[in-house]
Design a protein around this nucleic acid. Structure first.
Lengths: 272, 272
DNA sequence: CGTCGGCTTGAAGACCTTCAAATCAGGTGG
DNA sequence: CCACCTGATTTGAAGGTCTTCAAGCCGACG
């Protein structure tokens, strides 16, 4: 149990460690943020859209997702959280939470209080910076998700999504270039990617038959990682993981995008 | 000129004032964040995707947008900024900026330094909270944008978008329930809403002929505000403006969503 | 052994895109 | 002053991507 505790702590610390090396003192302040430990069952919301006074959590084990529902009953999954991620952080400052958070599998979390967070910021500036970085990175992932849905077709979208998850999981030691365990159903993928579950199924088959990636029995297996990266135009800069966590051969190629934004805007005009 | 300066300052202060009443001392710290004042011409990027060491700004006048470009040359506009909004805040903590920021019209900004921001946080906790709120609200808008693109059809998406802009502009005194001046071209709307510019045109006509809203000659005119709100399922909670800034008759109706998320998850299962 | 949730497949149709081209307003130079 | 040019808007027609409807399959579980 104590041993397990140490392992859990590593997820967030390891993630933040990718940004700054944290001292022992900073690590113990980080540890101090973890208050009450709680468990939630899959499908039972932690945070509810439209309610006030929600609290934030740090995810220790399992997967969760943030989503919004429309009056029509449709829902859109905004992002998925894996161990080491914050849950519901945005909703603590809004009078009413703008979204819900639901465990995908059974999860363990620790509650984190806004006041503790604010005092920690004044005490340990480097930790504060690291947490700001984590929040910015979360936002960058939502933005990339927006690009996914707005400008990529179903297959590219799926490919990009699976690659991003792989990269994130690798950072906390839960995945590799080979693949990872993934508890998501095709219905969840549909709600996340803005597609119908039927089309999700077809797209997965398409990627499998193309020999790029297989998603079956709760496991994502990359068959041709590099081809998939090229197909999805996956450029992990927005994940801000300096040293390529997956030792990519294609590292040089992957970064070809960087100069692109400095093209004169003529290049973009009237593109659609 | 000095008079103009006071007016500009009000945009951010007025926005934050919607969340907490700021004291004179806090307002002067806020004022102290404004460093060098700069001007940018429409179409000339302030922040460039893939570059490092970017700075953040506060927008004083004019409109800007944040966007990402794909290697295929397509682009996705993530959000639009109006006076009182931060520009490029997310990119200051990431080693490489994940997005670009471009002025839609000629704009005036003040640069804001990360170090100033951090020290201001330790000095004036209430101001810190107000700025966290503003950042959370910006994120909530991006999330709602994600829902727009993922789960609403073209007409609903456009309607929702125009209503959100109206609500935001009203908060800084640049719009009302009647309408507002809007410098966006149909190409920009297309890049923002994940549609083709041709379809944008058709959808605008559709909404105009339905008697709900007219967008012509750089001006958005709401013809039937309430009908548009209902059509778009526009629920401004995520903008977190407690007192309804536009005095809606439909206020009671608009908030009917709140209880929705507490439905058992059976209601959502297999919805698509 | 029957049922239930999740996955798979087919066929028809809706929504949106692409291609193509016309109109219109503003600005520029002859 | 007017012809010309450029960029933004508008409209039509054909086609593709994805959705919806419908139904069969499979493994898990009581």
């Amino acid at each position: 149990m104590e041993d397990e505790h140490i392992i859990k702590k590593t997820a967030l610390a390891r993630k933040l460690g990718a940004f700054v090396d944290l001292s022992g003192a900073e690590l113990s302040v980080l540890e101090g943020l973890h208050k009450q430990r709680r468990t939630f069952v899959a499908g039972c919301d932690l945070v509810r859209q439209g309610q006030s006074g929600q609290s934030a959590y740090i995810l220790l084990s399992g997967w969760a997702c943030a989503y919004k529902t429309l009056v029509s009953g449709q829902r859109q999954i905004v992002n998925f959280q894996i161990p080491g991620d914050f849950l519901g952080l945005r909703s603590v400052l809004l009078k009413l939470s703008d979204h819900s958070v639901e465990p995908v599998s059974d999860i363990e979390v620790t509650e984190v209080l806004l006041t503790d967070l604010l005092t920690a910021f004044t005490q340990t500036p480097r930790l504060a910076t690291a947490i700001f970085w984590a929040v910015s990175r979360d936002e960058a992932m939502i933005v990339e998700h927006l690009v996914d849905i707005g400008r990529r077709n179903a297959a590219e979208r799926m490919a990009h999504f699976l690659l991003e998850l792989g990269a994130r999981l690798s950072l906390v030691g839960m995945g590799s270039k080979e693949g990872y365990a993934c508890p998501l159903s095709q219905y969840m993928l549909a709600d996340a990617l803005g597609l119908s579950s039927i089309h999700i199924n077809r797209v997965l088959r398409q990627l499998r038959e193309a020999g790029m990636v297989t998603f079956r029995n709760g496991f994502v297996a990359f068959q041709d990682y590099d081809q998939l990266v090229e197909f999805a135009e996956f450029d992990p800069v927005y994940l801000d993981q300096t040293r390529p966590l997956l030792p990519l051969q294609a590292a040089g190629k992957v970064h070809r995008t960087h100069g692109l934004a400095s093209r004169p805007s003529i290049w973009r005009a009237h593109s659609n």
